[in-house]
Simulated assay, not measured.
Amino acid sequence: MADQTARQRARRTALDAQARMRARRVDQERRRDALGVMVISALAERDAVVSVCEARAGAALVKMTEQERLSLAEAVEWCGGAELLTVREAARLRQAAQSEGVAGPVCGARTTARTRRPRVPATL
């Protein structure tokens, strides 16, 4: 009988220890889940900010090359040179801006939808 009571006590002790370990693991997984969500959220925010900034840079490069008639290499030089911006990176930014239509219409460029101004009679 004493043997059986000792086994039951030992089993209860082991089960209690296992329950505490499971509870610690659950808490640990919750913390890790929350931290993982924080990391991904921060990276998504960063990517959104980078996209906006790259769109602005690309739009400016489009204007430099199309309106100001600079070559891409000249535009890069005006931006501080290859130490700050490579021609390859400038080409990528400009291409992205052109494909997204970020730069808007170029001054003097023809569009398919032309609007007519009403004629104003000369009064002099």
Rank of each mutant, 00 (worst) to 15 (best):
P118L: 14
T86F: 00
E74N: 09
T115C: 09
T5A: 06
V39F: 09
V106E: 00
V87D: 04
A10W: 06
L85Y: 00
V87I: 10
A91W: 04
A48D: 06
L93E: 02
V106K: 04
T65V: 15
M64I: 06
A14W: 11
P118M: 13
V102L: 10
E74H: 04
S41K: 12
Q95Y: 03
V62G: 04
M38F: 02
Q95G: 15
L61G: 01
A10H: 08
A57R: 11
M38D: 13
A57G: 07
A82Y: 02
D33H: 13
L15H: 05
R69M: 13
V106R: 05
E66D: 13
R119S: 12
R88M: 05
R114K: 13
R92L: 12
V87N: 06
R88D: 07
V120R: 14
S41T: 14
A2H: 08
S41I: 03
A96H: 07
R117I: 02
R69D: 14
T5V: 01
A34S: 10
D16G: 15
G104N: 03
E54C: 10
R117Q: 12
A23G: 04
A34T: 08
G36A: 03
A17D: 14
I40K: 12
G81Y: 01
G81E: 01
A57K: 09
G36D: 05
V106F: 00
E74Q: 12
E54M: 05
S71Q: 01
L43D: 12
T111V: 15
R88E: 12
T123N: 02
G108F: 02
V49C: 06
G58Q: 08
T111G: 15
R117V: 04
R31P: 02
C107Y: 04
L43E: 13
L43A: 10
E45L: 07
E100I: 02
A34M: 05
I40L: 14
Q28S: 15
Q4V: 07
A23C: 01
L124P: 15
M64K: 03
M38P: 00
A55D: 14
G58E: 02
A42K: 11
L84F: 09
A59E: 13
D3A: 15
A19R: 15
R24D: 14
A75D: 00
A103T: 10
E100Y: 01
V50W: 06
M64C: 07
T111E: 14
V37L: 08
R114W: 11
R7H: 09
A73Y: 05
G36V: 05
Q8C: 10
Q28Y: 09
L70G: 07
C53S: 11
S51K: 07
A42W: 00
A73Q: 12
